[in-house]
Simulated scan of single mutants.
Amino acid sequence: MTSTPTAVGRVRRAPAATVGVRRRTLAVIGAILAIALAVVLSLAFGSRPVSIDEIADGLFSWTQGRTPSAIGAIAVQERIPRTVLGLVAGAALALSGALMQAITRNPIADPGILGVNTGAALAVVCGIAFFGISSPFEYLWLALGGAILTAIFVYNVGSVGPGGSTPIKLALAGAATTAALGSLVNAVLLPRTAAMDVFRFWQVGGVAGAGWGTMATIFPLLAVGAVIGLLCAPGLNALALGDDVAVGLGVHIGRTRVFAAAAGVVLCAAVTAVAGPIAFVGLMIPHVVRMLVGPDQRWVLPLSAAGGAVLLVLADTIGRLIGYPGETEAGIVTAFVGAPVLILIARRTRMRAL
């Protein structure tokens, strides 16, 4: 008699496992198709629509190193760098947001809300205003330093008091830090018209200034940050069960947090250095991915990267269309889409510690 319920339980659990595998498989296939569609749309639409034949001519000309034969094909070649930067930057920002949410166990954590973007922006602003920097390499290291210092400051402030660092305290510390650093950015820029002219387009966030040399500067850091972040996935799964359980499973919780946090900060800072402080990508995408495939970080992290790439490329394409004959920066589009998502998450999340 005792074996029957067990057998029934196994039968009932099997379909659930099958559905989980099916859903994750469909999510992977959907992500691949969405990336392909986003790339085609990015190459096809802009100040001048481009046909499929012109896209093919532009791509073949680019790969073979020859001059394209049509104006549309030339437009395709001009759009290739910004499409590649959109894919890479979106993937890095979404992966950074997923890592920060896993570390803090906070669904509204992302580089923008925790102040990392603003810290990187302040460092770049100071470099432009006081030291006259202009190269992507200088932007990169200043943004990296500002992001790291801001992340350390927010974590220390959020850890003060009983209970140590909690999701709510970290979010409040990040929001306060973002407001303070944003004020400092304005204080530095307002008296300096020349610095403001250099900074104002970068501040909005976008991929219009993409170039192969710029991307070559950040690719090594992005690759290292992405590999480290993905390797932290099993440890982050254990941390989600609680520190005591994670220690019992043999996970070094301090090392896992440090490596995952470092990877998230590096990814965010490298993108901010070349594309500006693009907000909400790291907030929206991991939340949507968890709704689709569950909380397993081995799936959440890579699918978040894919989703972020799709979102930023589509945001850049939409910005080119709605801003015609000019263009609207991708950072404005992601903020417009991300604000309702933040409100939805806040309404659905129970803040038990309040």
Rank of each mutant, 00 (worst) to 15 (best):
L267G: 01
G213I: 12
W62P: 09
V21I: 14
V11M: 11
V88H: 03
A129K: 01
T63S: 15
P340T: 06
T25V: 12
L222G: 02
V274N: 00
R12Y: 03
L239G: 01
A269P: 13
G146W: 09
T4W: 13
Y139M: 07
I32Y: 07
P191H: 10
L312N: 03
P15M: 00
T4A: 12
A269D: 10
A120C: 07
G308H: 14
A151I: 14
V288K: 06
A34R: 04
M196Q: 10
L189S: 02
G119I: 01
T150P: 01
G264I: 11
A91F: 07
I148P: 03
F219L: 15
V21N: 11
G72D: 00
T2I: 09
A176R: 04
V204E: 07
G182S: 07
L172E: 04
P325E: 12
A36L: 15
G146S: 06
F130K: 04
D110T: 02
G72Q: 00
T217M: 05
I345C: 07
Y155V: 02
A91S: 13
I80R: 10
G276K: 03
A309K: 02
I103K: 01
A306C: 10
G46V: 05
R105M: 08
R298C: 02
A335H: 04
L172S: 02
L303A: 10
R352G: 12
G225Q: 09
V40A: 14
T328S: 05
A27F: 08
T317V: 04
M196F: 15
L172W: 04
I343A: 15
D243P: 01
A16S: 10
M291K: 11
G97A: 08
V19C: 00
A187F: 14
T334Q: 06
R348W: 03
G119S: 00
A75W: 04
V293M: 07
V88P: 02
I228A: 06
L222H: 00
A346G: 06
L85Y: 05
P5F: 13
L301E: 10
N156Y: 03
A75I: 12
V39F: 11
M284N: 04
R24Y: 08
L321M: 14
P220Q: 01
G174M: 04
L344F: 13
L33W: 11
L311K: 15
A123L: 10
A226D: 03
D316T: 07
F137A: 11
I343F: 15
R24S: 15
M284I: 15
I278Y: 04
D197F: 10
E138W: 12
L314W: 02
T83L: 08
T317G: 05
V224C: 02
G72F: 00
G72H: 01
S159I: 04
F60P: 00
A275W: 08
Y155R: 06
F45N: 11
G211K: 09
F131L: 15
W299S: 15
A44M: 15
T317Y: 01
G326I: 13
T104G: 12
P234M: 10
N106V: 11
T193Q: 12
G46A: 07
V21K: 13
S135W: 00
P234L: 08
C232D: 02
W299P: 12
G213S: 13
G127S: 02
